[in-house]
């Protein structure tokens, strides 16, 4: 392993450990349980792979096993981001779920159709020959789900908040880098391998940095979105009541002074 490789590997383990330890300190694992399970899994995989010889079969098997687990947990993180973003807005949540289900059935339908016809019209992947293609397709679906969540939040003007925005940005950045890296790797083949080998870990390290910065502060658990206008309306009602009381009092003042 060269210097950059070692830096990325140990730097990643260090940041993962920092995120996990910080979550224990701030109890933010209670708010984002799936994300921290994902983080614990990635940490475990990094430490496990560090003990194995990178050229051994055990390393390759372990790598793909952990990769599959973390990709699946990545979907869990997306569900968590979607749920946390829209939990206080049932109407927006309904639209996002509808779009996500529509995309899911669209993808599954497309795959069934292409396998029935023995022809993939968009030639996105030939999974049996290229494992990279499978990873890329799974990452593309993750990117689409995250895009739907962000689009619905923007459309309905829903603020994400610091922690949630950090989660979405970090995850979005890593997914974007993964899609680009695997897509170019699939298209250019061995020529792109040296770049792809460094690109994804660098992207992941940046995402870890974003997560650590976003989740460093204590996450305040709230059951409802802040409603400044409710307070504003309430203040207005109080002001109006005070005014009415003053009016009534002014009418009684002459009587009181008698």
């Amino acid at each position: 392993m060269d210097f950059l490789g070692k830096f990325l590997w140990y730097g990643g383990i260090g940041l993962e450990a920092a995120i996990l330890l910080r979550s224990l300190w701030t109890s933010s694992y209670l708010r984002f349980p799936i994300f921290y399970t994902y983080m614990a899994c990635v940490f475990a995989s990094s430490v496990t792979l560090l003990t194995l010889d990178p050229n051994s079969e055990a390393y390759a098997k372990s790598f793909w096993y952990w990769n599959a687990v973390t990709i699946l947990l990545g979907y869990g993180v997306l569900v968590e981001i979607m749920h946390r973003t829209l939990v206080d807005y049932p109407g927006a949540d309904r639209l996002a779920r509808f779009l996500a289900i529509a995309v899911f059935f669209g993808v599954v339908g497309g795959l069934l159709l292409s396998s029935a016809l023995h022809y993939n019209p968009v030639a996105i992947a030939n999974w049996t020959h290229h494992v990279n293609a499978l990873e890329r397709d799974l990452r593309i679906v993750q990117a689409v789900f995250l895009t739907i969540t962000l689009a619905v939040a923007i459309h309905y003007r829903i603020a994400l908040g610091r922690a949630l925005a950090g989660l979405a940005f970090g995850f979005g950045f890593y997914v974007a880098v993964s899609v680009v890296s695997t897509a170019l790797g699939y298209y250019y083949g061995k020529k792109f391998e040296p770049i792809a080998k460094e690109l994804q870990p660098i992207g992941y390290l940046i995402s870890l940095g974003i997560w650590l910065a976003a989740l460093w502060q204590t996450v305040k658990v709230r059951s409802k979105p802040p409603n400044p206008q409710v307070e504003d309306d309430y203040r207005r009602v109080v002001a109006m009541t005070r005014e009415k009381l003053r009016e009534v009092r002014s009418r009684f003042m002459p009587l009181e002074s008698r």
């Binding site: 030639a123 996105i124 593309i140 895009t147 974007a176 170019l184």
Partner: peptide, 13 residues
């Protein structure tokens, strides 16, 4: 086409 779709998805995200 696969590459173009991938890049379009990334641009959208």
């Amino acid at each position: 086409i696969g590459l173009i779709i991938s890049l379009l998805v990334v641009v959208g995200l």
